[in-house]
Design a protein around this nucleic acid. Structure first.
Length: 574
DNA sequence: GCCGTTTTCGGCCCGACTGTTTTCAGTCG
C-alpha cells in the first residue's frame, strides 16, 4: 500500500518509544530513531523502492537486513507485526506521556506500571488526585511541573516557530547578551543558524570567563515568562510567546567547539565525534582532546582543521554528504544574499499588494537591485484582486513611464498567472507574450488525486510562455501540507522546457523546501529565489529564501536572479 | 539493530541540570 516516508518513519519512532519504555538495549532504540530520521529525510519515496528494488533499501545508512525487511513488510501489509506485539504489552498512550518535558521512558513506565496511566488525560487526573507524588522517584515538585506542562500543552500545542518569526526575539536576546558584562562573543546557534525554515527552540551561546552576569541578564529579559532551569553555565527560559530559549555559557577557549556542538545538527555532530573516536580523540563542547589535552576549540575552523577538513557552512551540517564533500575539498561555494541581483516575484496595489508600483520600485532600487519583476495576480485569484488582460496592458504602460524615470533599476513586466484545474493558464497567450516574466502558480484544488495533479502541473510548466513554476508545492507551514503529486515528473518537465523552479521566501511558504530544491538542482533545473513581496518591507524576505537555497547546496550559477539584467532577459526570452 | 583502514563481535557521542536522593538516575539537548 502507498505509504509516505514520513509515515514509515513514524512507525519506527513508535517502536523506538515502546522499546525504550520496555528498557530495551538503548543502542537498538537508537537504531530505530536513526532509521526514522534517515527514512523521513530521504527524497525518494521508499514505498516505491520497497516494491521495485527492496535490496537497495540496505544501501541507506543505518538500514540493515532487519530494518529493510520491516520497510517491505510495512509497505506490503500496511502494518508491522513487531509494533503490534509491542502495543499489546504497552498501550501506545504510554509513549504519549514522554512528549511531556520531564517524562522519559523510565517515568512513563513507572506511571503505567504503578497507576495504570495510559494517556495524558489519565495522567492529569492522577496528578490532581495526588497519586503521582507518592511514587518513588516522583515528588511534589515533579507533580507541579507536570501539571504546568499539561496546561501549557493545552494552551500552545507543540508547534515549531517560523524562523523569520523567531528571528525577532533571537536577535534581540543576542544583542542584550553582547552588552552584558564579561561577554566576549554571542551567537544564535541550533537549527536557526543552520537556516531551517522552522525552529523548535532557540539555542544561544555565549563566550565568557564567568557566566554569572550573562545568565542573570538572560533570565531577567523582559520577554521571559518563566525560568525553566538555571545553573552556572546554562539556563532555559520560556518567552511570553511560548518559545523556549536555551543559553549556554562557555570559556572563550572553547567557543568554537561549543558553537559547533550547539549548531548541530545532531547527526553532523555524531558523525564528527565518531571521526574523533576513530583517531583516539574526544570531541565535546569544550574542545577536541587527546588524552586530557585540548588540541582545538577556540574557533570552528580550528576544530574542522584538526580533522583535516575545511570549515563547513552551517546550512550544510545535516550529515547529508557534507563531511564527505569536505574531506575531498569539494564543498560547494554556496549562494549568498549579495549574489542576488533582483527579485522576480512581487505584488503591487494593482492586485493584492499594499504599496504601488513606484514605491516598490524605489524600495528595490534602495536594496541595490538591477531589476524587479512586478508579478500581479491573474483574474482567477479573486481574493487577490487579480487583473485581466486589459489590466495588464494598462499596467505595462505605467511600467514604461516608470522605467523612463528610473536610473538604476529596471521594472520588468510580469504576471503570477494561475494554473487552472486542467493545467491551462488563466491569461491568454497574447497577454503572456507581452510580458518579460511569467510565473505559473496554483492557488486552488490542492488536493486533486496525485495522478491528476501531476498531469495538471506538467501541462502548466510545459506551456511555452512559462518561465518559472512558483511556490511549487503550495504548502503553508503549519496550515496546509504540500500538495501530493509526482514531484520527479514535474521536475523532469521543468528541465525539458527550461522552466525554473521558485524558492518563495515568504516565511510561511519557504516553497520549495530544502530537500525538494536539492532534487530540482540535481535534475538540472534552475532556481529562482523570490521574496513574493506584498509590500516594500517584504522585499526583505529574500534573505529567508537564500537560506533555503543554501540548504539545498545551491551555488550562484544555479540561480537565475543572480544574472545581470541583459543576461537574465536573454535567459527568459529563450 | 547497525557496522567494520582496530573488529563479523563488541562496540555504539557526550555533558549539564533537576529532583529526589544520601551518591545518583533520569531527562534533555
Amino acid at each position: 500500500m502507498a505509504m509516505t516516508n514520513e509515515e514509515i518513519a513514524q512507525r519506527f519512532l513508535e517502536i523506538a518509544d515502546l522499546l525504550e519504555i520496555e528498557d530495551a538495549n538503548p543502542f537498538r532504540v537508537r537504531a530505530y530513531r536513526n532509521a526514522a530520521r534517515v527514512v523521513g529525510e530521504h527524497p525518494e519515496r521508499l514505498d516505491q523502492v520497497a516494491r521495485s528494488d527492496p535490496e537497495s533499501l540496505k544501501e541507506l545508512p543505518g538500514i540493515g537486513d532487519d530494518l529493510a525487511a520491516k520497510i517491505v513488510e510495512l509497505v506490503r501489509t500496511g502494518r508491522l507485526e513487531m509494533l503490534h506485539e509491542l502495543e499489546k504489552r504497552t498501550p501506545p498512550g504510554v509513549a504519549e506521556l514522554m512528549r511531556l518535558p520531564g517524562i522519559g521512558p523510565s517515568k512513563a513506565r513507572a506511571l503505567h506500571d504503578a497507576l495504570g496511566i495510559t494517556s495524558l488525560a489519565a495522567l492529569r487526573r492522577a496528578l490532581e488526585l495526588g497519586h503521582v507524588r507518592e511514587l518513588p522517584g516522583f515528588g511534589e515538585r515533579t507533580e507541579a511541573r507536570l501539571l504546568a506542562a499539561l496546561v501549557a500543552r493545552e494552551a500552545e500545542g507543540e508547534r515549531r516557530a517560523l524562523r523569520a518569526v523567531a528571528a525577532v526575539p533571537a536577535e534581540a536576546i543576542a544583542d542584550a547578551l553582547r552588552a552584558a558584562p564579561g561577554v566576549e562573543a554571542c551567537d544564535i546557534a541550533g537549527s536557526f543558524r543552520r537556516g531551517r525554515d522552522t525552529v523548535g527552540d532557540l539555542d544561544i551561546l555565549v563566550a565568557a570567563g564567568d557566566g554569572e552576569a550573562a545568565i542573570e541578564t538572560f533570565c531577567s529579559l523582559p520577554d521571559v515568562r518563566s525560568v525553566l532551569a538555571r545553573g552556572g553555565t546554562k539556563a532555559t527560559v520560556r518567552l511570553a510567546t511560548g518559545l523556549q530559549v536555551d543559553l549556554r555559557v562557555v570559556p572563550p577557549d572553547s567557543y568554537g567547539a561549543a558553537l559547533l556542538y550547539f549548531t548541530g545538527s545532531k547527526a553532523h555532530n555524531i558523525a564528527l565525534r565518531r571521526q574523533a573516536q576513530r583517531r583516539g580523540l574526544l570531541l565535546n563542547e569544550y574542545g577536541l582532546h587527546r588524552e586530557k589535552k585540548r588540541i582545538a576549540g577556540r574557533t570552528e575552523e580550528e576544530v574542522y582543521r584538526a580533522f583535516g577538513l575545511p570549515w563547513i557552512p552551517p546550512e550544510l551540517r545535516e550529515n547529508a554528504g557534507e563531511l564527505e564533500a569536505a574531506a575531498k575539498h569539494a564543498l560547494p561555494r554556496l549562494l549568498e544574499l549579495a549574489d542576488i541581483r533582483g527579485d522576480l516575484q512581487a505584488h503591487s496595489t494593482d492586485s493584492d499588494g499594499r504599496d504601488d508600483l513606484a514605491a516598490m520600485a524605489a524600495a528595490a532600487e534602495a536594496l541595490g537591485y538591477e531589476y524587479l519583476a512586478m508579478t500581479d495576480h491573474s483574474p482567477a485569484v479573486r481574493v487577490a484582486g487579480g487583473m485581466d488582460a486589459a489590466g495588464f496592458r494598462a499596467q505595462a504602460r505605467r511600467i514604461d513611464r516608470l522605467n523612463a524615470k528610473l536610473r538604476k533599476l529596471r521594472v520588468l513586466k510580469g504576471a503570477e498567472v494561475d494554473i487552472r484545474a486542467d493545467g491551462s493558464l488563466d491569461l491568454d497567450d497574447a497577454t503572456l507574450a507581452r510580458l518579460d516574466v511569467v510565473i505559473a502558480t496554483f492557488h486552488s484544488r490542492f488536493t486533486l488525486p496525485p495522478r491528476e495533479q501531476t498531469r495538471r502541473l506538467v501541462r502548466a510548466v510545459s506551456h511555452p510562455r512559462v518561465n518559472i513554476f512558483g511556490h511549487p508545492t503550495g504548502r503553508l507551514i503549519g496550515r496546509r501540507p504540500p500538495s501530493a503529486y509526482d514531484f520527479g515528473a514535474v521536475v523532469k518537465a521543468c528541465a525539458e522546457h527550461g522552466v525554473a523552479m521558485e524558492i518563495d521566501g515568504q516565511p510561511e511558504r519557504m516553497d520549495l523546501d530544502d530537500q525538494l530544491a536539492r532534487l530540482a538542482l540535481q535534475a538540472g533545473v534552475k532556481l529562482v529565489i523570490s521574496s513574493d513581496a506584498h509590500s516594500t518591507v517584504e522585499l526583505g524576505f529574500m534573505r529567508w529564501g537564500v537560506s533555503q537555497a543554501r540548504r539545498a547546496w545551491a551555488v550562484k550559477k544555479d540561480v537565475l536572479n543572480t544574472l545581470p539584467l541583459e543576461r537574465l532577459l536573454r535567459a527568459l526570452a529563450r
